[in-house]
Amino acid sequence: MSTQTPDTDDSDPQAERMARKDERAAEREEAASTPDVGDDAITLKVFRYDPEVADKQEPRFDTFHVPREPGITVLDALIYARDTYDSSLTFRHSCRQAVCGSDALFINGSQRLGCQTQIADLNDSETVRVEPLPHREVVKDLVVDMDHFYDQMDAVEPYFSPKEDPDGEQLQSRENREKIKMSTRCIWCGACMSSCNVAAGDNEYLGPAAINKAYRFYFDEREGEDRQEERLRIIEQEHGVWRCQTQFSCTTVCPKDIPLTEHIQELKREAVKQNLKFW
């Protein structure tokens, strides 16, 4: 906020307000420079690992104490810990608003976005345990290798590709847009894949996000029916939709509330319908 006001009246409430603000800022600064983080500080237990650093080659947990600000998220707490105590603490993050999908983490035992998770809302808000996404290779601390996830996405031909190039603006009904709407919200965070038991056991399983991507194009009326068949063939393969055991773990963790299991089920039904047609 600017300290300048457009009017120069000295006796306005602005001066008082700024004084109060400065006071609060000074208090905050003091809190940050001294390790006194208040009586109800959050205990943050963070997974640490670095293949190159001698005392981090064996994975371990480090504990940080973070002041409890109203509305503080897990990502805020990690940033605080990094900037205050240990600049080598490593995690991906960028948008801070649940659109970039960088910071899916394993928080108190479930997959969540750090930036979207308020500590006060956790089952245990005293001690927050933060680990990298399970079933992924850890690169360092909270960073996992995402290449496998990206490969699975690539496998479903994740792009709009009608047989013929459209000529001018295509029409799409509101109903059809509504039909695919939820499926287009995916931010590639990988939470679903990490939560899935089937994916954990079958490295080639396409996984919920990739199948959802296929759903997004399969049901988009603009792409055309001839593509539908080809798309079904991809997701029907050995490591495709039929692997899903409808355990709903992906749907539970998806930060964008995409009904993943339902989408997978619907594609199974489409596949059955198609196969009957060929009979």
Binding site: P166, L171, Q172, S173, R174, R177, K181
Partner: peptide, 18 residues
Amino acid sequence: VQLENWGMPFSREEDGRM
């Protein structure tokens, strides 16, 4: 229009136009 042709899910009017 090109984005639309590449499949971008724009919001639609009753008549199906963007």
